[in-house]
Simulated scan of single mutants.
Amino acid sequence: MRMVYYKTILEAAKHFEEKKAFLFDMDGLIFDTEQLFMEQLAIVMKEHGYTLTKEFYIQSLGLTGENLKSLMCGAYGEEYPFAELSAESRRRVSIVAETVGLRVKPGIRQLLGWLCEHHKNCAVVSSTHAKYVRKYLEYAGIDSYFKEVIGGDMVERSKPEPDIFLLGCEKTGVTPEEAVVLEDSENGIRSASRAGIATICVPDLKYPGEQVLPLIDVIVTAGEITE
């Protein structure tokens, strides 16, 4: 099937008006947090003598748990203090979320309003720990729009494996054919594709590569997302 392009995330969602459930990634999709987390992780790593590049960070998007640990330790050595640095980075991001707030990405509030009006089931399906997802949604005042929150701590295998989106379907009471995933990362797109779920891609830090583009059903054109 040929990929369809839209200028706004709302237009992209309307393409799937017949779907019953909309499964949202969080970091880089709902909130502009990927850039923030990358900056905080880079600072923490530098304090411990490591250097983080944007190119390498992009490889980690959507990964969690053992998959993320394997990537980091493979690049920086087995002695890399993965748990310590990840926890400290997340702690600093949480401080920003509590004190300054997280920027909800353009078009998200409008989209959630439309989905609510049309009685669609919405869930956040994120690699981030569920407790942080709930906090961030509450801080932004959009938690009431989501029927379920599924975090990376709730599945054994993280993205790009299909487990987390299949759990999202189960929790919202739909089949994969009745759902659509909204994602920004390549690993998230791969995960949704393996789960047999249609995808809307809203690029954030990186436009999808040639191997991922065939897995996308609808894409929001980068740089033209508007409220």
Rank of each mutant, 00 (worst) to 15 (best):
K120R: 15
N187T: 11
I164Y: 07
K120H: 07
G188T: 06
A198I: 00
T172G: 07
K147P: 00
V181F: 06
K105S: 02
L137K: 05
E88T: 15
Y145P: 03
I200C: 03
S158H: 09
I164L: 11
V96G: 01
V93T: 14
C201W: 02
F146Q: 02
T99Q: 14
S127R: 01
V100N: 12
A123P: 07
A87W: 00
E78R: 08
S185Y: 07
E178V: 06
I150M: 05
K171E: 13
L85H: 07
H119T: 03
L112R: 10
S191V: 10
Y80A: 01
K120V: 05
T175I: 00
Y145F: 15
M154D: 13
A198G: 01
E156M: 12
P203Y: 04
I95K: 15
D163H: 14
H129P: 12
L115W: 00
L85Q: 13
G113C: 05
T128A: 11
D143P: 02
L182V: 12
T99D: 13
F146P: 04
V93L: 13
P176C: 12
E84V: 05
P81I: 05
V133T: 12
G101H: 08
I150Y: 05
R90Q: 06
Q110R: 15
P160A: 05
V125P: 04
R92D: 02
L115S: 01
R194F: 04
P162W: 03
G173I: 10
G113H: 14
Y132T: 01
D184R: 10
D143A: 14
D153K: 11
E170P: 04
E156S: 13
W114C: 08
S158E: 08
S94Q: 14
E170K: 15
E78V: 05
R92Y: 06
R109S: 09
Y136K: 10
E178L: 08
